[in-house]
């Protein structure tokens, strides 16, 4: 599991996270939800050691994030930040192949190539494998980055708003793929998600954040309630049910 204790973080004098203590359970899909600026991405970036820790402690499967060598962490967790415009001109197959780099450090074996082919296939990228990253659509580039994180094949997978740029069918396919990793291979996933119904439909565990603090956490059914969500987003929100899962409606 991922254990976070007494985590505080400042960016340019502003306190982004206030003394956060929580955990992501192993073998579950954990969704971080909350309004813009709640500190969800910052929390995920700190777990993924994309930003240095200022205060507090984080362990991922027993590895202290601030002390474990970064190349060792890359074999324990894969993290995908929010993509900014990247000028790099790689073919999609080459990008996804770099997901195996933490395992082979430049000398890929048959196993590595098989996993890359598998990841390309899983995200319907095989027909685009030879296209350059700067010549595909935003959604296709996003899928290629997710496929790279998949190819990394780690016990933990952390994704910051992976549904950005994805259409409904690819978003659903991604969530189903994550579910499959968890249910059949015992992997664990943490993700920041804005479209709350994806959390409602697929997540086991939900952490609701607001203003750098955790407002509620627990089973999806317990957190995604009208009271919690209306308070979280400062807006009247209705929660119905669909196929045994909560269904969140913004037009209450």
């Amino acid at each position: 599991m991922i254990q976070i204790s007494n985590l505080g973080h400042k960016i340019g004098g502003a306190q982004i996270l206030h003394d956060i203590t929580t955990s992501f359970p192993k073998g579950k899909l954990t969704a971080l939800i909350g309004p813009n600026g709640a500190g969800k991405s910052t929390l995920l970036r700190l777990v993924g050691r994309l930003d240095p820790l200022q205060q507090g402690e984080i362990t991922v499967a027993g590895h202290d994030v601030s002390r474990t060598p970064t190349e060792e962490l890359a074999r324990v967790m894969a993290i995908l930040g929010q993509q900014t415009a990247i000028a790099s001109r790689l073919r999609l197959s080459e990008l996804v192949a770099f997901g195996r780099w933490p395992h082979h450090q430049g000398r890929p074996g048959a196993d590595d190539r098989a996993k890359v082919a598998q990841a390309l296939d899983a995200f319907a990228l095989t027909p685009l494998a030879n296209r350059f990253l700067d010549e595909v659509s935003g959604g296709q580039a996003q899928r290629a980055h997710i496929a790279m994180a998949f190819a990394q094949d780690t016990d933990w997978l952390l994704l910051d708003e992976p549904l950005n740029n994805l259409d409904m069918s690819h978003a659903r396919a991604l969530m189903a793929r994550l579910r499959d990793l968890i249910d059949t291979q015992g992997r664990s996933v943490g993700l920041v998600v804005h479209e709350i119904n994806y959390a409602a439909a697929w997540a086991d565990h939900v952490i609701a954040m607001k203003d750098g603090r955790i407002m509620a956490e627990g089973f999806a059914d317990d957190v995604l309630t009208e009271a919690v969500l209306s308070d979280l987003y400062d807006a009247p929100i209705a929660v119905g049910r669909h196929q045994g899962r909560p269904l969140v409606l913004h037009h209450a």
Partner: peptide
């Protein structure tokens, strides 16, 4: 060469792949 190519993908991706 691989390290420079990964570096070109940005700090986030490079760190995620365990590159110093």
């Amino acid at each position: 060469a691989d390290r420079f190519a990964i570096l070109g993908l940005g700090d986030q991706v490079a760190t995620g792949l365990g590159l110093s």
